[in-house]
Amino acid sequence: MRQPVDVDPGPDPVDARLAARLGELRAERGWSLGELAERSGVSRSTLSRAERGEISPTAALLNRLCHVYGRTMSRLLGEVESEPASLVPADAQSVWEDRASGFVRRSVSPPHPALRGELVEARLAAGADLAYDRPPVPGLEQHIWLLDGALTVTVADLDHPLAPGDCLRLRVWGPTRFRCPADRGARYLLAVVLP
């Protein structure tokens, strides 16, 4: 009986397109890696590795870059997808995962340049603790509707514990944090509206 052979599938195509787009955004502005490092607070080596596709960026890293480039994470991820469609079947919705934090993000309604709103389905693993030091776009409007599990969202040092069915509405100007208890994850719908 033959033993199965593990074959490396190679780099993830979304990660490869994301790496290329990150390099394009920096080049469009004429910034060196050093200038981007200063603006984002991310080391030059990490930025270089992300642009070359040597690492898959974490949600926190993408958030910092989105802030510097003035776009939401959904918009950035939407820019690496093919042309946006009006109808996106469930099996064609873009999924991105930050394995380090246990965060999985599905673009239910992908962003479009002519529209300000989008829907995202998010999943956090039990015990996940995801912190953003700033919003990708200051004043970003968010509606967080918890579908399953337990989630605490911290905004301006104020904790908002959510139970299934609860919805938190906010405008994001500063740091935010999403935490799940050690024994329960969370699945929530995030509505994002540009200011």
Score class of each variant (00 low, 15 high):
105 R>K: 14
150 A>Q: 15
129 D>H: 12
102 G>E: 01
89 P>T: 06
105 R>N: 13
90 A>G: 04
153 V>H: 07
169 R>L: 11
98 D>P: 06
141 E>P: 00
78 G>A: 01
74 S>K: 02
70 G>C: 07
154 T>N: 04
46 T>D: 00
50 A>T: 02
157 D>C: 07
133 D>N: 06
175 P>N: 11
90 A>Q: 13
156 A>E: 15
139 G>D: 10
139 G>P: 10
119 L>R: 11
114 A>L: 14
48 S>M: 10
171 R>W: 08
98 D>V: 06
47 L>I: 11
153 V>R: 02
93 Q>S: 08
61 L>A: 06
48 S>P: 07
148 D>E: 15
94 S>N: 05
112 H>G: 12
180 C>A: 08
70 G>I: 05
112 H>N: 10
175 P>V: 02
148 D>M: 08
70 G>Q: 14
114 A>H: 12
46 T>F: 08
174 G>M: 08
116 R>G: 02
64 R>W: 01
155 V>M: 03
141 E>N: 03
48 S>H: 12
180 C>Y: 00
89 P>W: 05
132 Y>L: 14
84 P>Q: 01
77 L>A: 08
180 C>P: 02
133 D>T: 15
48 S>A: 14
48 S>D: 07
83 E>Y: 06
44 R>Q: 13
115 L>S: 09
123 R>L: 10
57 P>N: 04
116 R>A: 13
90 A>N: 07
89 P>R: 11
86 S>Y: 13
124 L>T: 09
114 A>G: 12
103 F>M: 10
95 V>D: 09
90 A>S: 12
152 T>A: 11
50 A>H: 00
156 A>C: 09
163 A>D: 14
107 S>C: 10
125 A>W: 01
58 T>D: 10
184 R>G: 03
79 E>V: 02
114 A>R: 13
87 L>A: 12
123 R>M: 09
111 P>M: 13
91 D>R: 09
64 R>G: 07
54 E>G: 12
163 A>I: 03
97 E>N: 06
159 D>Y: 04
88 V>P: 00
127 G>M: 11
170 L>T: 15
96 W>G: 00
67 H>W: 07
54 E>C: 07
50 A>G: 04
128 A>H: 08
50 A>L: 10
112 H>D: 14
179 R>A: 12
77 L>W: 08
150 A>M: 11
128 A>I: 04
123 R>K: 05
144 I>K: 01
110 P>F: 08
51 E>I: 05
49 R>C: 01
53 G>V: 08
93 Q>M: 10
116 R>P: 00
110 P>S: 15
55 I>C: 06
81 E>I: 00
